[in-house]
């Protein structure tokens, strides 16, 4: 298993409790050794949550930890930081810099708006000596968890997802079903997947050979069916987003085959359609699976309501089994919940 050098913390909803989980990881990170690097992606990381307008909890850093954040936040505590490098990235709150904490304290991580920007900041954090990098993922569940950005992800399921625990569990179940798709391991299928990405075309696998179809996605199936329907494909690979409508089209053409997509971030399918596709013999696999290492729960919503913590933990544990579930606030600190993570 590839060692984990970067972890993204992603929430299933706004105000899920990502910052608490990040603070728990920072707190539990071994005090000796190389420093931790921290950054945030998207619109998160501002003082107020961009979605709810609520004041966001700060990230607590220890001396020597490295951050990628905006000039605005560094200049608020000028004595706390040694500025190491300009990342060449702009955030809503100005230029983003790599800085080293000269003393313990709190900081807000300015959201880096683009994937390329986040990659650049992660590279610079590594070059500055960060042994492990924590990425505060954007509210958009699909972008930061991409395996291309971090080695592993922790998903946070918060009460803010719904005032009903039943609904929270239902949504979490759907998320885990869709975001834990199996990796495509057959060499020919993987090759088809990579060609599909490079050429932006649907690639068919049939009896040990590949065929590049004149389609960029399955939405074109209806109008160009003659060009592909004659074959009973073993697998079809595509590069773009996979939607309910596309699966429906495939089913209409009795093509419940194995589909290869780049990652779960490309999946825009609802669970009933997903199950229907599977029942009829179809299957969806990914080239790059998301490496989920923990599920974290937060039974308290900023709206004021709460779920019984133990009940929520048990029920989430059932839907995400065998993924371990942590409650950063209630689990005793000595328990070593981050074994294999930090």
């Amino acid at each position: 298993m590839k060692p984990i050098r970067s972890i993204s913390v992603i929430g299933l909803s706004k105000n899920a409790g990502k910052t608490t989980v990040l603070n728990a990881l920072i707190h539990d990170y071994p005090k000796s050794g190389f420093p931790l690097g921290l950054l945030s992606m998207g619109v998160d990381g501002e003082q107020r949550d961009a979605w709810s307008g609520r004041e966001k909890p700060p990230i607590r850093v220890r001396k020597n930890m490295l951050v990628a954040t905006s000039a605005f936040w560094l200049n608020r505590q000028p004595g706390n930081w040694e500025v190491l490098q300009d990342c060449g990235i702009s955030s809503v709150l100005g230029k983003v810099y790599i800085a080293r904490a000269k003393r313990e304290g709190a900081v807000q991580l300015a959201g880096i708006p683009t994937r390329n920007g986040a990659k650049q900041a992660m590279r610079l954090l590594s070059e500055a000596g960060a042994e492990k990098i924590l990425l505060d993922g954007a509210y958009d569940r699909r972008s930061p968890s991409c395996p291309q950005l971090t080695d592993a992800s922790i998903v946070v399921i918060g009460a803010s997802l719904s005032p009903s625990l039943t609904e929270v569990i239902k949504k979490a179940k759907e998320w885990f079903r869709l975001f834990r798709l199996k990796e495509s391991t057959a060499p020919l299928e993987r090759q088809a997947g990579h060609i599909a990405i490079k050429r932006r075309r649907v690639v068919g696998v049939l009896e040990g050979r590949l065929e590049i179809l004149p389609l960029s996605g399955f939405l074109e199936l209806k109008v160009r069916e003659k060009e592909w329907i004659q074959n009973n494909w073993d697998a079809l690979a595509m590069a773009g987003a996979l939607t309910d409508q596309m699966l429906e089209t495939l089913l209409q053409h009795r093509q419940a085959v194995r589909l290869i997509i780049p990652s779960a971030a490309h999946l825009f399918v609802h669970l009933p359609m997903f199950y229907r596709f599977h029942r009829q013999g179809g299957e969806i696999r990914v080239l790059e699976p998301i490496r989920l290492i923990k599920a974290a729960i937060n039974p308290d919503s900023p709206e004021g309501y709460s779920f019984p913590p133990q009940e929520m933990k048990e029920k989430i544990g059932q839907v995400c089994f065998p993924l371990p579930v942590v409650d950063a606030v209630r689990d005793p600190r000595e328990q070593g919940v981050w074994d294999g993570v930090l």
């Binding site: 000039a71 560094l74 200049n75 000028p78 930081w81 500025v83 300009d86 230029k95 810099y97």
Partner: peptide, 8 residues
């Protein structure tokens, strides 16, 4: 100037 401006 501010911290980051001195750095610049």
């Amino acid at each position: 100037p501010q911290l980051t401006e001195w750095f610049d």
